[in-house]
Design a protein around this nucleic acid. Structure first.
Lengths: 127, 127
DNA sequence: ATTCATTGCTTGCATTATGCAAGTTTTTTA
DNA sequence: TAAAAAACTTGCATAATGCAAGCAATGAAT
């Protein structure tokens, strides 16, 4: 649970704590190069925005993994928290501009999967 | 033990070993959703094709990981082995059509990294 | 022909991540 | 107010990763 405190002093920490190389592909994979992160982003792009929504996706992400991924996505500025639309006190998640700009990545991966992995199909269209 | 031939696992891979869902993104991530596979494919797209080339890339992939990834890429039909161009007896690797068709994915990830990860830059252009 | 360095791996082992089940706390609903 | 749902956390077993070392097969040099 990050305590979201805004610091005013200039960042001393380098932009990347432990970057393997300055290659943009390598750096991108440091952020979402795993089997779950892009699935959470996919769900967000499809309009799902609650913890339970991600959990109920067909791949069945374990809740401890989901907590970890959401935390990392918040840290890396791809996701932010907002009040849930039901007016209650719980929070929901949404993509920032940085996260939303992964749509071309998502589309290219989806297209590749549809073309080369037999039996795949798009379950939900993005509205 | 024979060298460089058989995998340790049973390898009776059915069309879909254990697919998490029929989602094309999920299935694609089952194949290259990790921190190393796409870097090997990047190197192949840049014209590198030998084990030592992959090892000498700036990210420093461990050789056991590289062996595993090459084996999986062969299994999934994204990479094939060919005689090395130096006329010797050693083999090299190259992308199949399936692997090469990941270029749009690679490009979208590279573009995203360049746009959103400060300090990244393309080290080698693809010829 | 013998030595030597390079290539392409494999092995062993410590560390880290993943996956599963269960438990906990807060919020919402009945 | 009691119960259910939501959003996590914790514990623990298993798997993946990362590092160093080792080793057999080339290829090059002597």
């Amino acid at each position: 649970m990050p305590k979201a405190k805004a610091s005013k002093r200039p960042l001393k920490t380098p932009p990347t704590p432990s970057r393997r190389s300055p290659c943009p592909v390598s750096c991108a994979l440091d952020l979402f190069g795993d089997r779950w992160t892009l699935l959470v982003i996919r769900d967000l792009m499809l309009g799902r925005n609650r913890f339970k929504d991600f959990v109920s996706s067909p791949e069945g992400i374990p809740t401890n993994i989901l907590s970890d991924r959401l935390e990392r996505l918040l840290e890396s500025g791809m996701v932010r928290q907002i009040p849930a639309s039901d007016g209650g006190k719980r929070m929901a998640y949404e993509l920032t501009e940085k996260g939303d700009s992964l749509r071309p990545v998502m589309k290219s991966i989806r297209d590749w999967g549809l073309a080369w992995e037999p039996g795949t199909k798009v379950l939900l269209q993005q509205g």
